[in-house]
Amino acid sequence: MARYYELSAPPEGLARDLGPGGDRVAALLHGVSAHVPADGARGWASEGLPKTLAGAPVRPTPHVPAALLDRVAPSWLAALERRRHDARRRLHATGRADRLELAEHVAMLVATPRLRPADPEDDDALAMSGAILWLLGTLVADALAEDRADALAELIARGWWPVGPVDGAFLTAPLDLPRRPRGGPPERSRHA
C-alpha cells in the first residue's frame, strides 16, 4: 500500500486504489483542498445549499461563536458516531481495513495542515478544525463502506462545514472557518 508523508491534495489514482467508494472519498478530499487553500481564507456564497438537513432548515452562517459549539445536538453527534463505528466494523469484516487505513491516512495528510488555525493557541479554532476532521473521518469510512451519495459529504465537497443541528436549525459555515482571522469573514466575502 502506498505511504505518503506530505500531501497538498489527494494523490493521483487514490479512487482506484481505494476500490468501491474510492471516487467519493477522492471527491470529498478534493473539496477540502480546493476550498481550504493553503494560503488563507476564501470568500463564501450560500447558493445551492439544500433547504433542509437532518430534518431541520439549513442556516448558513459566516461565524460559529464558541458558545454554539457545545449546543450541537448530542443525538446527531451520537448518530454520526454510530455510522463511523458501523462503517469501520464493516470494512474490517470484509477485509478492507487496509483501504480504510489508506483513506484515513490521506485524509489526515490533506486536511490536518490545511485546517491548522493561524494561532496555535486558539482553542475555539482548534475545536472547529477538530470538528471538521472528525466529520471527515466519519464520512471517509462511510463512503468506503456504503458507496452511496451523502448530503454531508456533498456539502464538504462544495466548501461547507455542516456544523450540525443547533436550536432547531442546521448550521453550515465556510469550510475554512478555522483558518480565518477571528471576528468574521474576510473583506472580499460576498453574501448571497
Binding site: Y5, A127, M128
Partner: peptide, 24 residues
C-alpha cells in the same frame, strides 16, 4: 461535550502527523 470531542480529534490527528514527520 462536542467541543472536547473535537479538540481530542484535532490532537489525535496532530499526534499522528508528528509520527509521520519523524518517519519522514
Amino acid at each position: 461535550t462536542p467541543r472536547d470531542k473535537w479538540l481530542a480529534c484535532r490532537m489525535a490527528m496532530e499526534e499522528y502527523g508528528h509520527h509521520l514527520k519523524f518517519n519522514k
